[in-house]
Design a protein around this nucleic acid. Structure first.
Lengths: 196, 196
DNA sequence: GGAGGAATCTTATCATTGATAAGTTTGACT
DNA sequence: AGTCAAACTTATCAATGATAAGATTCCTCC
């Protein structure tokens, strides 16, 4: 239906979009969440944005550049969502992490698809390490003292659990777990339980 | 270098390979582990097997069919690796799970790439559910009683942790965790610690 | 044992993709 | 106003997966 907020800046006749870079990222994200990662081609994105298929090159170079930029926004959003709960303990933070994944399954998946994004892209690398540093910081604030573990072990254990739950939730395996069991339990309750 | 064991059955002149189906799966797996999932095209696989690019169609239909069959062998191998430790507790089983992922990173990744495999393929679905049933069975045998959890919650928590560690290990994030910390610790030790 | 029929494999072709060179339009700066 | 660089389009290329048509081989039934 092309919900198009009438943009006040440029008239957008033919050439020169105004902020094509941002709109390409928007289009890509919409397509990503609506139709999945497999349709996320250069032509589909530019078509959705209403420009020619070569219009992305000046802004992103190639498809990998565009997807890397999109993944970068994902890491930034995740970090922003994590920040308010930094002091609230790992349980709350785990929920935020998994909820972000469930609410943005395409984007979250893209963030860990090293075959289509360029991890050596400096901007992406910065955002990525910032987010993971935030995560380890968060885990280190943990109240329940490590029983017999290395600090690194504790970090891996928690991040692993949270990340695994996120991935399994996106792939539908948690729903399978839920429906195979008789107990009618919401996914949210299951996560709350598993993250305890 | 094309290490080619002289096959005794068919002479393999031109037509009729003998067991092309198996060889295509072998070629695909080799390429997958050697060069990553992004080069796993129909043409690359058939080229590696020394046949024409249309030779896979009679056996697998299309690329998705081939990759689904390959993923199926992955689920079967994982189940076979898990079976001997079924009684040994969740710690040992977790190690087996993650080791399988680390030793077969491409295959393991493919097994959870729902965009390139067909989860509705009956054979794949059978192998997949068999493996996950084995996993839940294994977790249910757990010694450490669930503290305050639903059984489903315990299953999700354990599978999540193990799967998350596997994924993070493949993507190199655990190495980052290890190297950022001063403690020189092997990945194996880290996993052993985190899975406790 | 040979002949037909079906399955396997090849060749040729098509639509589609990402990349890129060359040309056109626009905005910015002097 | 005039110039120049950036943004955008058009046209084209090599490569991909799919598939139809043809060649080869295996297998079964007479």
């Amino acid at each position: 239906m092309e919900v198009q907020v009438m943009e006040p800046r440029k008239v957008r006749k033919n050439y020169h979009h105004g902020d094509l870079r941002a709109e390409l990222l928007r289009s890509a994200r919409t397509l990503l969440e609506q139709q999945g990662i497999s349709v996320l081609g250069l032509r589909a994105i530019t078509r959705h944005a209403g420009v020619s298929s070569a219009a992305a090159a000046p802004h992103f170079g190639n498809l990998t550049g565009l997807l890397s930029a999109l993944a970068t926004t994902g890491y930034e959003e995740l970090a922003a969502a994590l920040e308010p709960v930094l002091e609230k303990g790992a349980h709350a933070a785990g929920l935020v992490y998994v909820r972000f994944a469930i609410n943005n399954p395409g984007l979250f998946t893209l963030m860990f698809r090293s075959d289509v994004i360029d991890r050596k892209d400096p901007i992406l690398a910065t955002a990525s390490t910032r987010t993971s540093r935030m995560l380890t910081l968060l885990i280190d604030n943990l109240k329940d003292h490590p029983p017999q573990r290395t600090r690194t072990g504790t970090r891996a254990a928690h991040w692993g659990k949270v990340h695994g739950l996120a991935v399994l939730a996106i792939d539908g395996f948690l729903d399978v777990l839920l429906s195979s069991q008789g107990e009618d339990m919401s996914l949210e309750d299951l996560l709350d339980d598993a993250l305890r």
